[in-house]
Design a protein around this nucleic acid. Sequence first.
DNA 1: GCGACAG
DNA 2: ATCTTGTCGC
Length: 235
Amino acid sequence: MKPADYESLTAAQAIAYQQELRLQVKIETLDKPIRIIAGADISFNKFEETVYAGIVLFKYPQMEVIGHASAVSSTKFPYISGLLAFREVPALLDAWNKLEIKPDLMVLDGQGIAHERRLGIATHFGLITDVPTIGSAKSRLRGKYEEPANELFAQSRMYDRDEVIGIALRSKKNCNPIFISPGHRVSMAQSVEIIKNCIRGYRIPEPTRQAHILVNQIRVEHKDKSQLSIFGITL
DNA sequence: GCGACAG
DNA sequence: ATCTTGTCGC
């Protein structure tokens, strides 16, 4: 199954595919050094099928931006909780293929294994590109956890039954926690350490924060361009 | 049946 | 996710 064919899947088929992919997920220690890290995100206008995907590259752990790539794509797959990857991965893959340099690890906006079938978007993307990934979500999808103390980097485990599927991390004091989980080919402990190293005074870690800024401005520019054409203005 | 529900 | 001004708290 190719990401380009996700559009034709029904929700039931998508779930069945996740059950297949689940068997290939590797949550293990990454022993290769991380020199380049990337952040990825998607933006779109409500009610429209166009999606804007972007990936930003950073030197790690300095976190200096060293490059980026983006792609404008289209999808008919609706947003369904638990099936986010089928809507966003195809566009992200387009941006990924345009990348001059491939990162050693990528941070995605969403869950890794902190998912009902352990197949959040970060896990899904890592699996099909064979790149180590980490999921950094702004809200919880799955798992019970206790509120982390209101101190920088306070954390608490997220449980699904007896399994630890993620960590609720206070990335900034007086802000709600973010939810970290390994996506593919990295461990839980590494995932949290790496994300902590990516925090630069904001609640959202730099990789996804910068990727979000990138795709948002691309979307707005694209919107301005289509608005101008309505008025018959050409540039 | 009811509540929950990444982006 | 996106639409949006002010506003309350650290």
